[in-house]
Write a protein that binds this DNA or RNA. Structure first.
Lengths: 217, 217
DNA sequence: CCCTTGCCTTACCAAACGGTAAACAATCAG
DNA sequence: CTGATTGTTTACCGTTTGGTAAGGCAAGGG
C-alpha cells in the first residue's frame, strides 16, 4: 500500500493502457473507474486528475488507438508496388494491427455497437481516405484484368476490414469450433478468402516470374 | 398511470422483447432494469417477478434467440438439393435471420465480447452441428470440383457466419462509407464475396453454364 | 362466503457508481 | 527558507443500481 509508486512515474499512460484493456474486455459501462484505478495501483481521484471525466478517458483511449492506426497504415500504402505485393502489404498490416492485440479489435467492435453515430464520423475521418485509396487500386486492377470484374471495390474493402476486426475480436470463441491449430487455420482461411474473392483465377498470360500460391506471412 | 395495462396481457413476453432490443442497443451493463420496465410500461419489481434476476433475464433473452435459430436453420439444410441452390438457401437464411432484425446480430456480438467462455459453449451446442453439416457439403463439393480445393471448409463457414453477423450489426456505420444505396451494395458484395471465394470459376463439364448472377434473397 | 394463488404495486435497502473538496507530500523557483 | 505548482491521498456527496418486503387486488375453487 505504500510501495510500487516509484516504478510508475508516468501514471497517465499507465491509466490509458489499463483502461484500453478493461474497456475492451468488459466494456465501457462494465468498467468502473475504481477498476481502472486498481489496475494501475492508484486511487480513483488520481485517475480523474489525469482525465477529467470517465467520458474523457473513453475518448482518450479511442484516440490513442486511432493515432496508432493513422501512423502505421499510410506507410504501407506507398511501400509496395506490384499488385499482389500491395494486397499482401495492406492486408498484412491490417491483420497484424488487430491480431497483435485483439483488445484493439474488441474496442472497435464495442464502439461500433455502443456509439454508432460517433463511429460514423470516425470512419469517415480515419478510414474513408484509406479505403478510397485501396479501392482505387482495385479499380485499376479490374481494368487490367487482375481482379474479378464484379467486385464492388469499396464494399469489398469495408467487408474485409470488418471481417478482420471481428475475427480478431472473436478468435477465442470461433477457435472453439475448429480442430487442430485453430488460430492458424482461421488466419490462413481468412487470408485465402480475401484473396480468392478479389483476384481473378488466371493471372493474365504473364509467364514471367512464377510465384504460385504463396500464403501471406 | 392507470390505463395501458389491459393491452398487455402477457407482460412476460413483452419484457423479453423490450429487453432484447435494449440489451442489443445499449448493452447489458448499459441497460437498467428500470429501462426495461419503462419500455414495457410496468414497474421494476414486476420485471423481477417474471425473471428472478437481471442475469436470468439476460439468459432468457439469449435463449429465446437461440430457439429461433434452432427452429429455422435445420429446415433449410434439408430443403435444397443442388449445390448452388443449397448454398443460396443456407446463406440466404443466415443472412435473412440477422438482416431482418439487426438487433439479433448486435446481441450475438455483444455476448461474444462480454461472455466469451459462455459463448464457446453456446457455439458448440447450437452452431457446431450446423457448421459441420455445411462443411460436409463443401468437402463433397471439393471432391466434385465445384469448390476451390484450398478452402478450409470449417474455417470458411465460421468466417462467413461471423461476417454476416458483423455486417448486419454494423450496417448503419459501414453504410456511411458507401455511396448510393449502401445497404444494397453491402448485401450484394457480401453475397458475391462468399460465393466467389468458395465456388470454382469453371463449373466442370458443364458446357456453357450461364452464370445466373442471382443475388440471394 | 372465504381463502388461496398469481400478478403487480409502493416503499425501501445496501452497495456501487461518477465526481468533488480539502488536505498532504514532493518538487522547484525565488 | 518561502511559496507556488503538481500529483496524489482520504473523506465525502448525491444518484442510480439490482434486489427485497409487504401489501393490494382480481380470479377461481371449496
Amino acid at each position: 500500500m505504500v510501495a510500487a509508486r516509484k516504478i510508475s512515474p508516468d501514471v497517465r499512460s499507465a491509466v490509458l493502457l489499463a483502461a484500453t484493456r478493461l474497456f475492451a474486455q468488459k466494456g465501457f459501462d462494465g468498467t468502473a473507474l475504481q477498476d481502472v484505478a486498481d489496475a494501475v495501483g492508484v486511487t480513483k481521484p488520481a485517475v480523474l486528475h489525469h482525465f477529467c471525466s470517465k467520458e474523457a478517458l473513453r475518448a482518450a483511449v479511442l484516440d490513442a488507438m486511432l493515432v496508432h492506426w493513422r501512423d502505421r497504415l499510410p506507410r504501407l500504402l506507398l511501400a509496395a508496388t506490384k499488385s499482389l505485393d500491395r494486397f499482401q502489404a495492406v492486408y498484412g498490416e491490417l491483420h497484424r494491427f488487430f491480431a497483435d492485440d485483439p483488445d484493439r479489435a474488441r474496442l472497435v467492435l464495442r464502439e461500433l455497437l455502443d456509439r454508432p453515430e460517433e463511429m460514423k464520423r470516425v470512419m469517415k475521418d480515419a478510414v474513408r481516405p484509406w479505403l478510397d485509396a485501396v479501392a482505387g487500386y482495385i479499380h485499376a486492377g479490374q481494368e487490367a484484368g487482375r481482379h474479378h470484374r464484379d467486385v464492388d471495390a469499396e464494399a469489398y474493402v469495408a467487408h474485409v476490414m470488418l471481417l478482420v476486426v471481428a475475427s480478431a475480436a472473436a478468435a477465442d470463441v470461433t477457435g472453439a469450433l475448429l480442430e487442430g491449430d485453430a488460430k492458424k487455420r482461421a488466419d490462413q482461411e481468412l487470408s485465402r478468402l480475401s484473396r480468392s474473392s478479389l483476384f481473378s483465377p488466371a493471372p493474365k498470360a504473364s509467364p514471367r516470374r512464377k510465384k504460385p500460391r504463396r500464403s501471406p506471412r
